[in-house]
Design a protein around this nucleic acid. Structure first.
Ligand SMILES: NC(=O)c1ccc[n+]([C@@H]2O[C@H](COP(=O)([O-])OP(=O)(O)OC[C@H]3O[C@@H](n4cnc5c(N)ncnc54)[C@H](O)[C@@H]3O)[C@@H](O)[C@H]2O)c1
Ligand SMILES: NC(=O)c1ccc[n+]([C@@H]2O[C@H](COP(=O)([O-])OP(=O)(O)OC[C@H]3O[C@@H](n4cnc5c(N)ncnc54)[C@H](O)[C@@H]3O)[C@@H](O)[C@H]2O)c1
Lengths: 212, 212
DNA sequence: CAGACTTTGTGCCACTTTTCACAAAGAATA
DNA sequence: TATTCTTTGTGAAAAGTGGCACAAAGTCTG
């Protein structure tokens, strides 16, 4: 075993877990790969293959027991542990994240927020008080924060990333439309909302061209 | 020519365009694929191959002229046209999007916002007044909206998608953690922030395991 | 309990995407 | 202008990913 697991597989396992959780709530205790695939817009083969990376969870002729599969997925995905998260930039997007309860539910606790703007510092969202960026280097290790979220303007993003990494953060979720240069041992994930929309719009451009 | 262009290529072209635009602003008029790759965390070969889908833009021994490449990319990506966008759900995330100037700059004009909550309806963000969801079916065609953004709770998402599609929207950007079932001619892009973070956290889980 | 039926798990194949590597094109130099 | 150096553009190889298809395993029915 121990073949490399593609990142796409992990991402889909979270989708399966989300769906399976719904099912257990609805008192449905068994599901086939075909059904699970239908509910997630994926093929039955894909569902089975993804699960196959981690073992055998199904019963031939019957499908998967949702309670068992839920437990197995939670174990695989490390849902028994929680992680501390910091948000840098308490503007529109940063504030939306601070206010969002969905992260805590999934074991991702936002425990600090930082900003440079004096008007933002001291502001409270839920149980988090926005701190000065100058406190970042002390607060990150003190609060055992391993994930940083960058929600500052693009031209500030690299500087913030450097600060986060220096303070010991291991993963970064970057909302700024900028390419971050980071050491190999730091994992960055970009979420570029404009680009997502632009890519959609390209689809429309192509469709228009087709019409002609 | 006319081989199929992978979607990943398109997404990267937007990254190149962003970078090249910076360069032209900085009065840098030439760049090699190696340098552009370095600035975007991509390989030189990838840069050249991606551009190669659309023609020849470089000069052997010299690299690319940034002004020409910028113009070429804008043409390829349809940056001369603009698209009208609607946001459904004027909560935390929806409001952040309404307030964000970066979309208009890229030819994506948010021209309408909808909500069910009476307290949100009538609220103004920039030049957009939040309308009742009941007005959606009239407003979408009237304002020639082709892209819809879903920023409502997960269990409302499918219903909102159905409304948007019925009203004539061709693309959907979905922020709700839910799988949308839509006809083939509608393009959906999911942005699941929780899942992005969870995938990062899995990386930490794995790293912890390694240590042992 | 035998036979029909269902569904898993997985080897294999097809397809997509990335990387390699190098000839050809042009720039720079003297 | 000849020579050297740089960098492109692109086939061909490699790597990665998803789908097919079917034996094997288990369920269900009469
Ligand atoms: N709001 C959106 O819908 C949206 C959409 C797409 C992309 N983005 C991107 O997300 C990022 C944040 O967007 P936003 O709308 O929240 O912007 P915003 O201007 O509302 O907030 C940015 C915040 O970052 C703070 N800041 C600036 N420099 C800082 C620094 N060096 N250290 C700490 N804090 C700093 C500012 O004081 C401000 O509070 C931007 O890069 C933007 O391009 C936002
Ligand atoms: N805020 C975040 O940082 C964040 C992070 C990850 C995911 N999300 C997801 O994005 C979505 C929106 O999040 P949010 O934080 O903005 O939530 P929110 O509760 O602040 O806003 C949701 C809005 O949708 C409106 N709404 C509800 N049902 C509606 C309907 N049928 N039609 C029109 N409007 C309707 C509500 O009135 C509310 O204004 C959710 O699905 C959430 O899971 C948000």
């Amino acid at each position: 075993m121990n073949k490399k697991v593609p990142e796409g597989v992990i991402s889909r396992l979270f989708i399966y877990l989300r769906e399976i959780s719904e099912l257990t709530k609805m008192n449905i205790h068994t599901i086939s790969s075909a059904e699970l695939g239908e509910r997630t817009n994926l093929s039955d083969a894909q569902v089975r293959k993804d699960l196959g990376y981690f073992g055998q969870f199904g019963v031939s002729g019957a499908g998967y027991n949702t309670d068992e599969l839920k437990a197995a997925l939670e174990k695989i995905l490390g849902k028994d542990s929680t992680w501390n998260v910091a948000v840098v930039g308490a503007g529109h997007l940063g504030s939306a994240l601070l206010a969002y309860p969905g992260l805590k539910e999934r074991g991702l606790n936002i425990v600090a927020a930082f900003d440079v703007d004096a008007r933002k510092i001291g502001k409270q969202v839920k149980d988090i008080v926005v701190q000065s960026i100058d406190e970042l280097s002390r607060a990150i290790p003190a609060k055992k924060i391993s994930i940083g979220i960058i929600a500052v303007p693009a031209k500030e993003a690299q500087g913030v990333a450097d600060k986060l990494i220096k303070a010991g953060v291991e993963c970064i979720l970057n909302f700024a439309p900028a390419t971050l240069i980071v050491p190999d041992n730091v994992k960055v994930k970009d979420v570029d909302l404009s680009r997502e929309l632009e890519t959609l719009s390209y689809f429309l451009v192509k469709r228009e061209e087709m019409k002609k």
